[in-house]
């Protein structure tokens, strides 16, 4: 600007932009809060848990600035109905097996767009009479850079594998299309592609130095279990049990039960006849002197998770209870 007091926005326009930001940020904050309980993966839970509060503070800052711009405090406004449609679609991934879709919507589509939009706004907000707005935008930009970096790290971890990568692409295409149709969160069009790329690139750099919501640390905590301390004799009995489940060998299974427990009265009756090709131990827990072992059975058309409670006896480890913990259950991401 050649003249320091030359400005791009009216106060009214500035207030409208803040209401429009507040609309998408508030909905995103509420969605992230609600999704934590619906998301199985610990790393993604922690990621969302960290960012809900930052987004609440962004909303609050936008909302408190509004009366200073002759508008009502804490009011949100969708730029147009298509923005509301975009947000409806972003929020609709509520299944326990849709963590990737949730993360793509927030961390790959919306947040990079918001970051570029905030940067664009900051570049055009007058430094003499708009410092209150500029300070808010600067704080939001810092947070969004960190969020995007952390989200990218978790998404790369959860979205390994070609089928999941296809889901990422499909989800991104769908939401990118809706966002473009809305003209971005302000309805005024998407910021320049270059601005988006610069924003994402800088976010990756910032994220590497950040500790409080470092996605790598969330992943480490998720994977920290290592090898389960299963006693050798129990591991042997567990393998025989799981092999018998896959083989459908009732006689071998019955031999592993404590005296008095009939195979027919256990949950095995629900699974008998289903074809499973392999098994994997997915959980190992202590219950006093007893042990709980969860086994996932996978077959060509179905899967099941079986929970066995093992007790140690003079004859070796035996199963005191056998339950089906889940059928055709949700797999990670």
């Amino acid at each position: 600007m050649s003249q320091p007091l030359e400005g791009t926005f009216s106060a009214e326009h500035s207030a409208r932009l803040l209401r429009q930001y507040r609309y998408v940020v508030e909905r995103t904050m509420r969605a992230l809060g609600g999704w934590i309980a619906l998301t199985p993966e610990l790393s993604a839970k922690l990621l969302m848990g960290r960012h809900v509060w930052d987004l609440a503070q962004h909303c609050d800052a936008f909302g408190q600035r509004l009366p200073e711009l002759r508008s009502h405090a804490q009011v949100s406004e969708a730029a147009n109905p298509a923005v509301a449609t975009f947000m409806d679609s972003l929020e609709d991934a509520e299944g326990p097996d849709q963590t990737v879709e949730r993360l793509v919507g927030v961390y790959v589509v919306l947040k990079p767009h918001l970051l570029a939009t905030y940067r664009d706004h900051l570049a055009h907000a007058n430094p003499v009479y708009e410092p209150p707005t500029r300070r808010i935008l600067a704080r939001c930009i810092d947070d969004e850079e960190r969020h995007i970096a952390a989200g990218d790290t978790i998404l790369k971890y959860l979205a390994a594998g070609p089928r999941v990568i296809d889901r990422v692409s499909a989800r991104r295409r769908h939401l990118d299309g809706l966002l473009a149709a809305a003209g971005g969160v302000t309805g005024a069009g998407l910021p320049m592609r270059e601005a988006l790329d610069v924003a994402v690139g800088q976010a990756e750099l910032v994220g590497q130095a950040e500790l409080s919501d470092d996605g790598r640390e969330f992943i480490r905590l998720e994977r920290a279990t290592g090898a389960w301390p299963i006693p050798a004799d129990l591991e042997k009995a567990q393998r025989s049990f799981a092999d018998a489940l896959v083989a459908g060998d009732d006689t071998a299974l019955a031999r592993l039960l404590v005296p008095g427990l009939e195979l027919e009265t256990t949950a095995w009756a629900l699974l008998r006849g289903t074809s499973y090709s392999h098994h994997v131990t997915v959980a190992f827990a202590r219950l006093g002197h007893q042990r709980l072992v969860k086994t996932r059975l996978d077959g060509p058309s179905s899967s099941a998770t079986v929970l066995a409670r093992w007790v140690s006896s003079p004859e070796g480890w035996r199963i005191a209870a056998l339950d089906v913990a889940g059928r055709d259950g949700v797999r990670p991401a």
Partner: peptide, 11 residues
């Protein structure tokens, strides 16, 4: 609907 990884045993 509370979602958990498989490694947790719920009782």
């Amino acid at each position: 609907k509370l979602a958990r990884e498989e490694r947790f045993v719920r009782m």
